[in-house]
Simulated assay, not measured.
Amino acid sequence: MGYTRADWSAHFSEGRDFRQLGDDEKRLIAEHAPPPAGGRALDACCGTGELAAFLATLGYTVDATDFAEGALARARAERSTVEGVRWLCLDVEEDDPADLHEDGYDVVTLRMAVAFVRDRCRVLRGLGARLRENGTLIVITPVVERTPEERRHIALDEDELVLLTEGFEEAVRFDAAGMAVLVLRKPGGSFASLEKGRPGPQAVAGAAAVVTDPSGRVLLGRSVRNMWEVPGGRIETGESAQAAAVREPAKETGLAAREEDAHVLAVLHDDRADVRRITVVVRITAWEGLLGLPEPHRFLPLGMARSAHPGHPGGLLRAHRPDVARGMAGSAARAGACPLLPVRRRRASGGRRARPDRTAAHADGGVRRPGRLGPLPAGPGRAA
């Protein structure tokens, strides 16, 4: 069964229909939406017009809408003797509702159709907005647990039924021979989102910290795998990318920073084996502390490497971390400006300017005093 106008028109033109309006449904409608004097009703997605005709017998003046011409052709032919019904070709999701009455409706019905509506909350909110004061929106739908498996595409499960009631201050559910009948009043309540169970993991999220100093040098470390790397790691549960980008350098280098000095530059995506990786590139513009080597089992001595363009780490990263450099360049192009920010070096405690610790431990436990960090070898991320 299709979802286009042409498919639905063919469905009805071929003589097919949905479940007939039952006595329990009629009783509940009459009980919970009795027509006031001059009552007006809107039957959305009316199909062949059975419910619209019933509303007319209750005393309502009815607007019956459907987007399938095949359905409306049958409705006009099969309900030709019913008075007080206006048949309108209208898609409640997409079309301009200008043909509907501006002064609203006392009851709006949506039967056997909500399962096929893509944006249900928005549509119900729109229908609710057309209710007059003390008006009622009635939604009738099959329920998954009471529907044969091969027809469950026309039904809603319990979570989906709960979501239909969001946005209405009053919501009552009734059963009508296995059909759920929702009686909704007083639109304007809050909405809530609901996920079905725990979602399956789609990717591994991490943060890469680009730590620079006022001279434009970038903090890089040569890993024991002989790779030049920026500090970074996985974003933990409940943690922001900025928080991870502050935490990882503190753990790997001993430098402390604050989240307000961490600025997202770009988001990178790549695949490693069968794992999708999402890396948020974050620039750290202020930090304090002494550069150390808390994890000698992972890194050789760390240091600030000078870029060919002082104040702009892009040249250095293009040579040794091209993935991060591409992400920064893409961020600048999208924003229309360079993503680099002013760098501030905070003073360490005691008021004296902190200097990098030029003594770093090797992975084998030895000690080296390297003086200045020499030039990095050329290559796309791997040491020569």
Results as ranks from 00 to 15, higher is better:
P231A: 04
G233C: 01
D213V: 01
P214Q: 07
P214F: 09
R234H: 10
R217M: 05
W228C: 11
R225W: 15
P201S: 08
W228D: 02
A203L: 14
V230C: 11
P201D: 09
G232D: 02
V230D: 04
G216Q: 02
Q202H: 13
G233L: 07
G216N: 00
L220A: 03
G206L: 12
A208L: 15
W228L: 15
T212N: 02
V210F: 03
A209D: 05
Q202M: 15
S223L: 06
Q202F: 10
G233T: 00
G206Y: 07
G206A: 14
A203F: 13
P214I: 11
A207F: 15
P201R: 14
Q202Y: 10
A205C: 15
V218M: 09
N226Y: 08
S215A: 15
V224F: 00
V224G: 04
G221R: 04
R217Q: 02
G216M: 10
W228V: 10
G206H: 11
R222Q: 06
P231S: 04
A205W: 12
V204C: 05
V224P: 06
S215P: 06
G221W: 01
A205D: 14
E229F: 13
L220S: 00
V218K: 07
G221T: 01
P214S: 06
S215H: 07
V204R: 11
T212C: 13
S215R: 09
A208G: 12
